[in-house]
Design a protein around this nucleic acid. Structure first.
Length: 466
DNA sequence: GTATCGGGGC
């Protein structure tokens, strides 16, 4: 059975009357529709979402009746993938969904949730979710929770996951993977372990999903628990790129440069995997944190020459960081100027950090100008330069720089997991001292815990004035 | 229809 038909039967099996009419139209009256849906699918699979959208639009104009629930599903998917396409195209397709009565098709609603999440419009995503009549469906919840997680709303993601479990919807590997990544962002290890064990209990016989194990490994890495991460790594017999990469990054982040590089070496000897560009971010980070400049330069070259991987901003950033940390500011500057792509604000900012570290006023001033050409919004850029002035005793310049700070600092967030409670803290957002004193807050939290034991999870905001 | 791997800085 061609995959498109298999797909169709899954749509009709859960759909209502409208879908049966729709599928009837597609199968019996409209072979053209089937054929052109195949074209849409082809564009999607070959990474040409814009072409898919144009194709859809043209077809809808010429013969609207050929557009069925499948075409719409592919068009939504294309809108999510086409980062360059303006988001109103997706919204137009959403309007079309309503007009054609497809909003009762759960696959379409799920895809719409994914679309709105991909353009950062999480409230519209939530609206689609809320408007979906039949919600007893893991995949719909997965799309919504993944949307929160992708848009840096891990607390909401976790909260929603808790609600999903209350609704007695069964876990699968995908939702567990998404939930673990939200837990990783919060450092909520205990909760993540619980989710993991609940999930594998059901599926023990089928063998565990590698993606799920990787996200467990990643959670330990994010929480700084390298030992537990390594245990998961060793127990995972069939490893893929992400397994190795997470572990390599884990060592690099925790200052174990040697272990990171040794693991990379071991990975190179494993013929079943080959490193990708993310792996090299980990390798370069390890070199940077370990002060291994020559090794880093060698690896960077090897990445391009031996592995044919194209360095991205992140790799250039690692190299700048590497050169800056070892005091080679001139080389770092030259490196930035010789980059084959236009350096972004983050790269310049890394260099500014290097100037701050080594007290280079002249270069710092120039770099700050380059940053301001791209982005004037960051308070930290004023602070960095004002600190360079301060270190050199240039008090007038320092004060002038501080006076130019107009915007207040973005509030910071932090989370603490204690038992089955997650508390969120939001710092005040002042521009001088918004640091969170986690130790002190946890004392406050201990008192809170005593008062709140009747809840499973409590999400709490309060301003810290420490 | 849904899924994991990214720095540094005040």
């Amino acid at each position: 059975m061609p995959s498109i038909l298999r797909h169709l039967s899954s749509v009709t099996s859960s759909g209502g009357l409208i879908n049966k009419v729709d599928s009837f139209r597609q199968l019996h009256h409209n072979t053209n529709s089937l054929k052109s849906n195949h074209t849409l699918k082809h564009y999607l699979e070959s990474g040409e979402p814009i072409k898919a959208l144009l194709n859809f639009k043209q077809r809808f104009r010429e013969s609207p009746s050929f557009v069925d629930s499948f075409s719409v599903l592919f068009a939504i998917k294309a809108s999510s993938l086409a980062h360059k396409a303006p988001s109103f195209i997706g919204k137009q397709i959403h309007a079309l969904v309503r007009k054609l009565g497809f909003h009762s098709v759960i696959q379409i609603q799920t895809s719409l949730v994914g679309f709105y999440s991909s353009v950062g419009d999480i409230s519209s995503a939530r609206q689609v979710f809320d408007e979906t009549p039949e919600k007893q469906n893991v995949v719909l919840w997965t799309a919504m929770i993944a949307g929160y997680a992708e848009n840096e709303k891990a607390v909401e993601a976790v909260e929603m996951f808790r609600r999903m479990e209350e609704e007695r919807i069964e876990l699968d590997e995908v939702i567990a993977t998404v939930a673990l990544s939200a837990c990783a962002d919060l450092g909520a290890v205990q909760m993540g372990e619980g989710i993991y064990s609940r999930c594998i209990k059901r599926k023990r016989r089928l063998g565990m999903d590698l993606t799920l194990r990787n996200s467990l490994l990643n959670m330990y890495v994010k929480a700084g628990d390298v030992e537990k991460a390594r245990r998961v790594f060793d127990e995972t017999l069939r490893k893929d790129v992400a397994t190795y990469t997470s572990m390599i990054v884990g060592y690099a982040l925790n200052g174990q440069a040697q272990e990171s590089l040794e693991l990379f070496k071991k990975m190179s000897q494993d013929s079943s995997v080959s490193p990708n560009d993310v792996t090299f971010i980990g390798v370069l980070m390890a070199c940077s944190h370990g002060g291994l400049v020559e090794e880093g330069e060698r690896q960077f070259r090897s990445m391009v020459e031996d592995y044919n991987l194209k360095p991205r901003d992140a790799h250039f950033g690692c190299m700048v960081d590497l050169l800056c940390r070892s005091g080679r500011l001139k080389d770092a500057h030259e490196f930035v100027n010789q980059m084959p792509v236009k350096p972004n604000a983050v790269i310049w900012r890394t260099l500014l950090g290097g100037c701050s570290l080594h007290g280079d006023v002249e270069l710092g001033e120039e770099v700050q100008r380059r940053i301001f050409e791209l982005d004037r919004g960051h308070v930290g850029d004023y602070v960095a330069l004002s600190n360079i002035y301060a270190a050199k005793g240039m008090w007038d310049e320092k004060l002038r720089m501080r006076d130019r700070v107009k915007k207040r600092r973005e509030p910071g967030k932090s989370w603490i997991e204690m038992g089955n409670i997650i508390a969120e803290f939001v710092s005040g957002g002042s521009d001088d001292d918004g640091k969170l004193m986690v130790g002190e807050i946890s004392e406050v939290l201990k008192c809170l815990v005593a008062c709140m034991t009747s809840y499973d999870y409590v999400v709490d905001n309060f301003n810290s004035s420490y």
